[in-house]
Design a protein around this nucleic acid. Structure first.
Lengths: 234, 234
DNA sequence: GCAAAAGTGTTCGTACTACACCCATGG
DNA sequence: CCATGGGTGTAGTACGAACACTTTTGC
């Protein structure tokens, strides 16, 4: 490794990831416990420094694999945090934050890979985080809410086959709104990108419910025709 | 300046800015001419390396002042380009791109400050740019179009007092859509954040037109009440 | 008085809202 | 047969879309 010392900056560049999961009416975020100095422990978003020859998005994937081994269904760049030059008190670090989604059925398979602890936290039970990670998370939640309403990313938080009631609850929970079941179902079905399967729900109680699948191909066809996904509420 | 050589990366971090201007049915972007090596010249987005103790957004403002001396009415982070590790062939550089708007009445006051040339280019007459700047610009245009439809940033491209027809043409031009004048006016006026002034247009020809102002205070009040700006077309 | 742009109302259709009862299953 | 969640239809309303003529000015 050779450094060209002239005009080399003393700034580090990191990536951080907000990984969202959803299960039974709760939105979760994946956090890892980090050790600072000899005794301080803090929960933090998974992330770390970018390698010299590593694309940003690959850095995120690598860090997530190293630290948490979750499998993502969606990932997107969120925002780059570099206005607060002391967001990391040790050095100047600029962080490119990403947010990602995981399938709810994989939510329990959280392997504590390293000595470090990894844990899902309910969105309304987030502890004080390291650095400015509470701020990053706040922005991530805002973006998730917004994106849910104009792109069909809710399906990436659900298993491949899911109940309509789960989809409905997911929207209610994350957007913190009440929805009329009938209107919601009518609207989503009218789009025509959901497929009924022949399978039924593992019964919890009451009448068994059909499982549905999101047909991404169909969705893409619709997009090409100028279709615009949108979920809004009163 | 002290470097902590362990875990110091060999990655540079830059900011680049897309500055949009609008005038008589055309969207413009501000570009500067850069010299590479001894003979190659390329047009590029204004930008440069971030200083060690400088917030990202201040770096953008500084570069714009140094290179172009435009006065911005709006600025927002766009995206961070760091997946292509060879986007700059000399070194690895990650670029945090911003986009900004300027008031149309300041559009002509482009002072060629340095020896470098600075120029407004029509959006459909952009030359091949340095690095991946064509890509950045593409993303910026997409974002501008999207943002125009759900936030009132069109006013930041117009003078303080403007004609309704200019607003209408701005939307038609940038979104590349046709709009019904009557419906457009009705809708915008119904929002109630435009103020009629007592002034009239400098006449070009035909009937003189009233000048309007965007009342940002009123707009913010509406937002607090849950109002949601939106302009859509068939 | 003619050319040029500004200003203005109505009708129609579509899409969202609100709302309540029956159905299938397990225990 | 009861408790639990699943599944469905209709009527009213509000908003967006389509559409053309009159007004004011300069020349």
């Amino acid at each position: 490794m050779t450094f060209n010392m002239e005009n080399l900056q003393n700034i580090r560049i990191a990536v951080d990831a907000i990984v969202f999961g959803y299960k039974s009416n709760d939105l979760y975020v994946l956090l890892i416990e980090q050790q600072f100095g000899s005794s301080d422990k803090y929960w933090a978003l998974p992330g770390g420094l970018v390698k010299d020859d590593e694309p940003l998005s690959e850095a995120v994937i690598r860090e997530l694999r190293e630290e948490t081994n979750v499998e993502l269904t969606f990932m997107e760049q969120l925002y780059t945090f570099g206005d607060d030059i002391r967001r990391d008190s040790r050095n100047r670090v600029i962080s490119v934050a990403y947010y990602a989604l995981v399938d709810a059925s994989n939510l329990e398979i959280k392997a504590d890979t390293d000595a470090e602890r990894v844990q899902w936290f309910k969105i309304d039970e987030i502890p004080p985080l390291a650095f400015d990670h509470n701020l990053i998370l706040k922005k991530g939640i805002e973006r998730l809410k917004a994106k849910l309403t104009y792109e069909p990313i809710g399906f990436d938080l659900l298993p491949d086959e899911f109940l309509f009631s789960d989809l409905e609850n997911l929207y209610c929970t994350i957007l913190e709104k009440e929805i009329d079941r009938r209107n919601f179902r009518k609207k989503i079905l009218s789009y025509g990108f959901l497929e009924e399967t022949d399978n039924f729900s593992p019964i919890r109680s009451g009448r068994p419910a059909k499982l549905f699948k999101f047909n991404k191909l169909k969705y893409n066809e619709l997009i090409d025709k100028g279709f615009h996904f949108e979920i809004k509420f009163a």
